[in-house]
Design a protein around this nucleic acid. Structure first.
Lengths: 135, 135
DNA sequence: ATTTTTGTAATATATTTTATTACAGTAATG
DNA sequence: CATTACTGTAATAAAATATATTACAAAAAT
C-alpha cells in the first residue's frame, strides 16, 4: 500500500471542497502538495471509481466533487485508500515448525482487525465537510 | 520507522514468554521468524533499553524476560516500537502559499493523534501474557 | 585456549514509493 | 478544423527505505 495515499486523497478532496463546483486541474492540485500530477490523476482515478468525484476531459477540464462534502465521511476515504491499519508484519514467512511462528500472523490479524474496527467507527463520525472546516 | 518492528518485537517476546527463565539465543529466535539474527539483536537491544528483557553474553548466552509477562502490556510494546499510528503523510512539503497546503499536515496531525490515543487505550488492556495465551 | 554467544558498525541487496516521460484521446474555442 | 489545454494510462527511472549480510571485538562457559 502507498503510505501517502490517504493523505494525498484527503488533500485533493479538501481542495475540491474549498472550490465547490469548480473543475480543478491535476496540475493545480499537484502544485498545492508539491507532487507529480500523474500521481494526483491516479488518486483521482480511484476516487472516480468510487463515485466521489467526477472529471471532465479536454480543455478547461478537471475534477470536482460528485456529491456534497457533508455526505462523504473520513471512513469512506479511509476505505478507498487504506487496506487496513496494521502495526506491521515481519517480512518473511515465519517458521511453520515453531508453535509461535505457526500462529503469530493469525494472532496479529485478530489484534489488527480489532484496532481497525475502532478506527473505522471513529472516522465514520467525521465528514469531509467537518474536516475541511479547519482550513 | 521500520514496519516490521512491532511484529518482530512481539514475536520475540512471545517466544520468551513461552520459555520462561530460559535464555534464548538470537539465532534461535531468528529461526522462528526467518529473519536475520542481527535484526533480532537490534530489537532486543531496544527491549533492553526499556528494561523489558535482560541478556547474558558469552557461551550459553541469550535473552529472557526481565519481568513477568503479565506486567507487560501491548501498549508498552507499541510505545517502544512505534512512533505513532498514522494514515500517512504526503512525502513532500506542501505548498505554503496554498491555504490548504499550509494547514494540511497540522490537521492530519490532530486526526492521527486522536486515533493514536484510542489505540493506546485499547492496547493498554491487553497484557503480553494474555496475547501469548492464544498460542 | 577454544567455543559460542552478544553487541555493533559498515556495507550491500532488495523492495517499495514516487517521479518522470511519453503519448493517445477528449473537448473548448477562435 | 487546427490549436490548445486538459485527462488517462503505461512504461520506465530514480529515490527512499527496509532488510540482509559480513565482519569482528568483547564476554563468558568449559
Amino acid at each position: 500500500m502507498i503510505p501517502g495515499k490517504f493523505a494525498i486523497t484527503l488533500h485533493i478532496l479538501t481542495l475540491l471542497t474549498k472550490s465547490p463546483d469548480e473543475f480543478l486541474s491535476s496540475e493545480y492540485i499537484a502544485g498545492s502538495m508539491n507532487i507529480n500530477p500523474v500521481l494526483v490523476r491516479k488518486e483521482i482515478g480511484n476516487l472516480k471509481k468510487h463515485n466521489v468525484v467526477e472529471s471532465r476531459e479536454g480543455k478547461f477540464g478537471g475534477t470536482r466533487l460528485a456529491k456534497p462534502a457533508a455526505a462523504i465521511s473520513l471512513e469512506d476515504i479511509f476505505n478507498m485508500t487504506f487496506n487496513s491499519v496494521s502495526l506491521g508484519y515481519s517480512k518473511n514467512d515465519p517458521n511453520p515448525d515453531c508453535p509461535v511462528g505457526k500462529k503469530i500472523n493469525e494472532n496479529l490479524d485478530v489484534l489488527y482487525k480489532s484496532i481497525n474496527t475502532k478506527i473505522c467507527k471513529q472516522l465514520k463520525d467525521i465528514s469531509l465537510l467537518q474536516f475541511t472546516s479547519n482550513f
